[in-house]
């Protein structure tokens, strides 16, 4: 990995739709993908609600952006870290989250899961390993 590649972490701590931050974070991730940096996404606290299945925004007049998470693999964004304690506190488990995968071209385009459920301590380690942290 060359010297001018930085580790970017997008920290998502807010639920979708009530405020714009979750959508804007995704927008920056998509734009940022063109810059070829080492990108990870963190979902903790209410941010875990962004990844749930079954979002249906038809009746609130707002675009449902949750399917976009499934397209992140096409942008080579393949590291979505989700904090287990945040899920537990909210009565959620991995089964409540969308299936998000990426195709590994070095492994015969095998589909691999993008979501990695990790502990709070592991999340702290990931945060401490970054060059740039963008908070939403």
């Amino acid at each position: 990995m060359s010297e001018d590649i930085k580790k970017f972490l997008y920290v998502n701590r807010k639920a979708p739709y009530g405020t714009i931050y979750a959508l804007e974070s995704l927008e920056v991730v998509l734009i940022g993908a063109a810059f070829d940096q080492d990108v990870s996404l963190a979902f903790l606290d209410d941010g875990v609600f962004q990844l749930t299945k079954g979002q249906d925004t038809k009746e609130i007049g707002v675009k449902n952006f949750s399917p976009t998470f499934r397209a992140l693999g096409d942008y080579e964004v393949t590291k979505l870290f989700v904090e287990r304690e945040s899920l537990d506190e909210r009565g959620l488990s991995a089964d409540d989250l969308q299936d998000i995968v990426w195709e590994d071209e070095d492994d015969d385009y095998a589909e691999k899961p993008s979501i990695r459920i990790i502990s709070r301590a592991e999340m702290a380690d990931i945060m401490a390993d970054q060059d740039v942290i963008l908070s939403f």
Binding site: K6, F8, V28, I31, G32, F35, V132, L134, S135
Partner: peptide, 19 residues
């Protein structure tokens, strides 16, 4: 555009967010 935000993250030493 938003690219300016990413570029700022790349080209500066510290990113400060106020919001």
């Amino acid at each position: 555009g938003l690219g300016q935000l990413i570029e700022m993250g790349i080209q500066t030493d510290r990113l400060m967010t106020f919001g």
